[in-house]
Amino acid sequence: MIEIGEKLRTLRKAKNLTSKELAKKVNISQSYISRFENNKAVPDVDMLDRILNALDSDLPSFFAPDLSNIPPDLIQLINTVKTLSPEARVKLNEFLRLIIKDT
């Protein structure tokens, strides 16, 4: 079972943020972020929600059972795809099918 801190670190790295940058976004100290990521402290729900919002995520996604097995680059891709319009997602799927077909 993956710890909350590991999941937070994975999300942060997927966003290409340092712990200092994340701390600044959430308006807490870098050491506080470090304590969470190293499982030395557990954020309360409000703090976790603030951190996840800064990472363009949310509580339901964070606690989804599959998230623990997703590598950071795939999380980054998923977050990018979430910002696309439905039409753009259709075009992206068509493009990906072409890439897979050619390999």
Score class of each variant (00 low, 15 high):
Met1Gly: 14
Met1Ala: 09
Glu3Lys: 12
Ile4Ala: 11
Gly5Asp: 12
Lys7Phe: 03
Lys7Ile: 09
Leu8Ala: 01
Leu8Lys: 01
Leu8Asp: 02
Leu11Gln: 06
Leu11Arg: 07
Arg12His: 07
Lys13Tyr: 11
Ala14Glu: 06
Lys15Gln: 15
Asn16Tyr: 06
Thr18Glu: 07
Lys20Val: 08
Ala23Asn: 04
Lys24Trp: 00
Lys24Met: 01
Lys25His: 04
Lys25Trp: 01
Lys25Gln: 11
Val26Trp: 07
Ile28Ala: 08
Ile28Glu: 06
Ser31Lys: 12
Tyr32Gly: 01
Ile33Tyr: 01
Ile33Met: 04
Ser34Asp: 05
Ser34Arg: 05
Ser34Leu: 04
Phe36Thr: 03
Glu37Trp: 09
Asn38Asp: 08
Asn38Thr: 15
Asn39Pro: 00
Lys40Asp: 09
Lys40Ala: 10
Ala41Asp: 12
Ala41Lys: 15
Pro43Trp: 05
Asp44Thr: 07
Asp44Glu: 13
Asp46Tyr: 15
Asp46Thr: 14
Met47Glu: 07
Asp49Trp: 08
Arg50His: 10
Arg50Ala: 13
Leu52Lys: 02
Ala54Pro: 08
Asp56Ile: 01
Leu59Tyr: 04
Leu59Phe: 02
Pro60Leu: 13
Ser61Trp: 06
Pro65Cys: 06
Leu67Asn: 04
Leu67Ala: 02
Ser68Tyr: 05
Ser68Ile: 12
Ile70Phe: 00
Pro71Tyr: 02
Ile75Asn: 03
Leu77Glu: 09
Leu77Tyr: 12
Val81Pro: 01
Lys82His: 14
Lys82Phe: 07
Thr83Tyr: 00
Thr83Gly: 02
Leu84Ser: 00
Leu84Phe: 03
Leu84Pro: 02
Ser85Arg: 00
Ser85Thr: 03
Pro86Cys: 03
Pro86Lys: 05
Ala88Gly: 01
Ala88Leu: 02
Lys91Pro: 01
Leu92His: 00
Phe95Trp: 07
Leu96Gln: 02
Ile100Tyr: 07
Ile100Asp: 12
Asp102Cys: 04
Thr103Lys: 13
Thr103Pro: 00
